[in-house]
Design a protein around this nucleic acid. Sequence first.
DNA 1: TGACCGATGAAT
DNA 2: TTCATCGGTCAT
Length: 198
Amino acid sequence: MKSLSPSFFTRSTKVVAQELLGKVLIHKMNNQTLSGRIVETEAYLGVKDKACHTFAGRKTPRTEAMYLPGGHAYVYLIYGKYYCLNVVTRTEAHPEAVLIRAVEPIDGLSLMHKNRKVQKAKDLTNGPGKLCQAMQITKQQNGMLFNQANLFLLEDQKIPKKSIVECPRIGVDYAEEAKNWPLRYYIKNNIFVSKLYK
DNA sequence: TGACCGATGAAT
DNA sequence: TTCATCGGTCAT
């Protein structure tokens, strides 16, 4: 399997969000590999998107990584407890990103079970905080470039348009006009998606 | 320095 | 549906 090329990430954020579905996320530890196929994403459209951390050009220590060129990781802490992994898109002039909301576990299931105390494999990585916990993604990975050191994104499957569901994003009710923008994408009928309404 | 709040998850 | 929990943000 081939790594995604740098030019994959600098395209429009919506396109990258849709095309990340079916790709494989890998975190290589000392002597173990944790990986999963991406099944759910959300696009965050920068300065004009009230749900986005960089809305109106906000630049703080936390959001610094979103101002890196496409292909970097943006990891932040939410609710004082959980990490969320994003893939930065476009260029320095456009601080946008794609939130990885769920993956389907491939390698390292036993380690993932150790990292998260759940019975079923389907509960391991079906949410943005859960997949970071399972795959040991923390602030350490913030600002890292994909396909350089130990975080990778590989090509693998192309998901046909008819298998992609589009709907509003989760947990952004405060975002006024942006709250209903259909920027959440997931693979239809996939049981590893975080919430299966509709 | 301090008040407020959240791109969640788990229990109920 | 409810709520724990604490770092990040922003106004003092």
